[in-house]
Design a protein around this nucleic acid. Structure first.
Length: 841
RNA sequence: GCGGGCGUGGCGGAAUGGUAGACGCCGGGGACUUAAAAUCCCCUGAGCUUUGCUCGUGCGGGUUCGAGUCCCGCCGCCCGCACCA
């Protein structure tokens, strides 16, 4: 091997072609080896891969390659989440067909991924926008329909009256359409829903089996599903009607001081019909934002309807308000408000001068303790509550529910926060929903033998609105039932449907059906799923639902799709800016425009300093982005991959830095020089180095399995340092060879190039993980700490397993220890074998 | 507001209740070179009266022979969210 520089631009492509040629990474479903399914969340084909993708796919790749080395048949596929709004936006802006734009992006991004040398089974590549994929999705949707998991109901959408189109939430900015600037209206449409709530209990219980998911994700899903138990009951109203309310705190019923209903509640509607002020107030509520964040910062507002509700226990007349903080979608859309023990009610009562009675106190003696500016929602003792006085919250809750049930004015009820999944989208670039509307037969499913219902190609995408709706011929068809004239459904499916089963299609892709149950079950569940935390709730919950729905219709015997989940952190970068001379606003510069020296940074264009800002998530607006292609050009795939794995724990953010990638690039060269020193003929044993080698191999394996890549990297650096210092020997040669195999999953091109010299003629991609000699994992000497009163005074290197009394004697013999003791009486000596001796004086 | 997470050198971070700062980056010094790059070696938490000592893991308490780690109370930062009654 020549001691020249390792040149990635010459080497990387050569090995990538070699892997392709030998079809190394094709997964064999019929293999007898233990199977391992490694999957990273597939990307949206936006045009260019992002450095965050590189981090995500590098992690998965290391695991996939490692699993191959340890004798597994690995499925590591890649595909494209190819339907969605950006394609339609691009179509409108650039006058290009969404399909053309999407497939061009896929081609570009695939080339980018190939340059990074990922061990992917490209034979299973799929794009969700292909009829080969979405046709099967339509079939599944029909199966769900057959089994009663699909239904239609009225639901509101954001309607832009100028563009005559439905807007997504993200297209509504401050209540206006992003393109037209028109005030957005709510419009009710008949839409398709999937009955995810039918599985609410199962989806909640299933979380318990997902022990290899991050605790935080399970908690987020649990909160999202939101099971609660409480009391649903009726208040009789002064106008002769009544109102159903739901409360999770029926124990506080004596503390109710008003009743609040949502703006969309029938009572509010009825009041508004006769009262223009009420109508105005309801309009005002609808104009406000709908996200939690906006609502939290919004002031609590209400409208007194003049109606009163009769308290079931005290008979008191409680005012009924229309309030902006009550949700129509949860419970009954009406609440009994208990200001003393609910913060929202507290703020509302304070604003409108309503009474704030205390009905729960820390103790019975504190029944009239004033509130300290906020509601108290914790546990305590019931007070000022008649027959409930003295009870705990739980006791009172149970008593009120049983009393309501026996007296017939209410009942205990479990309420879920989870709502059914609305899948209708009034857009072109999605999976057509396979139904037709017939005047005489109603809504009729398209027969499976007529699938796929393909999107028309010849559409006008240059103007807003749904091209399917206005296409001259596409929607006109005949009814499958009666043969009469009928119209196709023009809604398409939410793209979350596409990503809810792609991992199944990866595992098995027959032409004539969505998947083969046996083949799919052989691979599933995914052994390791890796992706961003932003998908913690929706995508992961929908995929869990879809999998259960498939089980429900008898197509797949799998409950949970992802056995192990890992959520990786973001890639961040510092920002470079100057204050604009005109308005004082910062002007940002990209890393490529800046020279970064040790201390500061200057703009290449004028050599003058720029301000270095905080390290934050990469974003186009702050220009703190790096382009994967550029850095691969500069440093090669292996240095970039190594950087992605170094330093930061994978679940935390990774700050990209010029200096960091330079360091990685230097390490590639350092290893290359070390590989050149490999000498198969070297003789002699170096026991200490052999021990270090085997310890490192074992530890790196453990680190990779636990996805602690940063620790694996640190250990490899350490072993490399030790090998460089060691004199030639058979042990040293073994160590060099081991390092090559350890880095093979991480820096596969460098490893192949080295393996060509020291391997067996085959690819390192086909090599086995080095074997570990258990006997070498244990040291025969240990360094123990000697403390006096808990402070370190000396260290001793002793034989492993030295008995306590010998350790104590050795410690006391230490001169440094004697000096610290300074003649004081020894009260106690604590000896932990192989660890430390602590002398207490 | 609710839910979750995190605070360790100049920076990213190591550390089964047992030698805090492994490993990397930055910085400093030296070797090699006509010179530079590359490479190699040494130093690099703070302070002090420097054979060594003291302090030090966001802040204040506590448990323990011993706390970055466990407990209680604060402070700060980050993430998620559909006001969930």
């Amino acid at each position: 091997m020549n001691e020249t520089r390792f040149d990635p631009s010459q080497v990387d492509g050569r090995w990538q072609r070699a892997w392709d040629k030998q079809d190394c990474f094709r997964a064999d479903s019929n293999s007898a080896k233990p199977k391992s399914y490694v999957l990273e969340m597939f990307p949206y084909p936006s045009g260019r891969i992002h450095i965050g993708h590189v981090r995500n796919y590098t992690m998965g790749d290391v695991l996939a390659r490692y699993k191959r080395m340890t004798g597994h048949e690995v499925l590591h596929p890649m595909g494209w989440d190819a339907f969605g709004m950006p394609a339609e936006n691009a179509a409108m802006e650039k006058k290009v067909h969404p399909g053309e734009w999407t497939y061009q992006n896929i081609e570009n991004m695939k080339a980018q991924l190939k340059r990074l040398g990922f061990a992917l089974d490209w034979s299973r590549e799929l794009a969700t926008c292909s009829p080969d994929y979405y046709g099967h999705e339509q079939a599944l949707f029909l199966d769900f329909y057959e089994s009663g998991l699909v239904y239609r109901k009225e639901s509101a959408v954001n309607w832009d009256p100028v563009d005559q189109t439905v807007l997504a939430n993200e297209q509504v900015i401050d209540g206006r359409g992003w393109r037209s600037g028109a005030l957005v209206e709510k419009r009710k449409l008949s839409q398709w829903f999937l009955k995810i709530t039918q599985f609410a209990e199962e989806l909640l219980d299933g979380l318990g089996s997902l022990q290899n998911w991050p605790e935080k994700v399970r908690l987020m899903q649990e909160n999202w599903i939101g099971k609660s138990s409480g009391l649903q009951f009726r208040f009789d109203l002064s106008d002769g009607g009544d109102v159903e309310v739901y409360s999770t705190r029926p124990d506080t019923i004596y503390g109710a001081s008003f009743v609040a209903v949502a703006a969309d509640h029938p009572i509010a509607q009825a009041v508004a019909e006769k009262n223009a002020d009420a109508q105005d107030f309801i309009e005002q509520c609808r104009a406000g934002g709908t996200t939690a964040e906006e609502l939290e910062t919004a002031e609590k507002l209400g409208f007194d309807t003049g109606i009163t509700a009769k308290h079931p226990f005290t008979g008191a007349a409680l005012p009924v308000y229309i309030a902006n903080f009550v949700l129509m979608d949860y419970g009954t859309g009406a609440v009994m408000a208990v200001p003393g023990h609910d913060q929202r009610d507290f703020e509302f009562a304070t604003k409108y001068g309503l009474p704030i009675p205390r009905v729960v106190a820390p103790s019975a003696a504190e029944a009239d303790k004033p509130f300290d500016g906020e509601a108290e929602s914790g546990d305590g003792v019931l007070v000022n509550s008649g027959e409930l006085d003295g009870m705990s919250v739980a006791e009172a809750k149970a008593l009120v529910i049983s009393r309501a049930e026996s007296e017939g004015w209410g009942e205990g009820k479990t309420v879920w926060r989870l709502r059914d999944w609305g899948v209708s989208r009034q857009r072109y670039w999605g999976t057509p929903i396979p139904f037709v509307h017939c005047d005489s037969c109603g809504v009729v499913p398209v027969p499976k033998d007529q699938l796929p219902v393909k999107l028309p190609e010849d559409v006008d995408v240059s103007i807003p609105g749904n091209p399917l709706e206005r296409h001259p011929t596409w929607k006109h068809t005949s009814c499958p039932k009666c043969g009469g004239a009928a119209q196709r459904e023009t809604d398409t499916l939410d793209t979350f449907a596409d990503s809810s089963w792609y991992f199944i299609r990866f595992a098995s892709q027959p032409k004539d059906k969505p998947f083969d149950p046996a083949e799919a079950a052989a691979w599933l569940p995914v052994n390791q799923y890796i992706g961003g935390i932003e998908h913690a709730i929706l995508h992961l919950l929908y995929a869990r639902f879809w999998t259960r729905a498939l089980k429900h219709v008898g197509m797949l015997d799998v409950s949970e799709p992802f056995a192990q989940l890992f959520t990786q952190g973001m890639v961040t970068h510092e920002t470079y800016s100057r204050k604009s001379a005109e308005n004082g606003q910062p002007v940002y510069y990209s890393p490529a425009e800046v020279d970064r020296t040790g201390e500061g940074a200057t703009l290449k264009a004028d050599g003058q300093p720029v301000e270095i800002g905080r390290v934050i998530k990469m974003s186009k607006s702050k220009k703190n982005v790096v382009d994967p292609d550029q850095i691969v050009d500069l440093y090669g795939a292996d240095a970039v991959r190594w950087f992605m794995l170094s330093d930061s724990p994978p679940e935390r953010d990774l700050p990209w830095s010029e200096a960091g990638i330079e360091g990685c690039s230097r390490f590639v060269q350092r290893l290359w020089r070390l590989f050149a020193q490999y000498d198969a003929a070297a003789e002699g044993e170096d026991k200490a180095l052999a021990r270090k080698t085997h310890q490192t191999v074992a530890a790196v394996a453990e680190d990779i399995e636990g996805l602690s890549f940063n620790k694996a990297v640190a250990r490899i650096y350490e072993l490399t340092g030790a090998v460089e210092k060691a004199k030639p020997s058979a042990s040293r040669s073994e160590a060099i060879r081991s390092i090559l195999l350890l880095i093979a999953p991480m820096m596969p091109h460098l490893a192949e190039e080295g393996w060509a010299q020291m391997g067996d003629g085959a690819l390192v991609a086909e090599a086995s993980w080095p074997a570990v000699d258990e006997a070498l994992l244990v040291d025969d000497e240990v360094t123990i700490a000697v403390q006096v009163k808990g402070k370190l005074r000396d260290t001793l290197t002793v034989a492993k397993g030295m008995p306590k009394d010998e350790l104590e004697a050795l410690a006391l013999a230490s001169e440094k220890v004697q000096r610290s003791i300074d003649g004081a009486a020894i009260r106690k000596v604590i000896v932990v074998p192989d660890r430390l001796v602590n002398i207490v004086i």
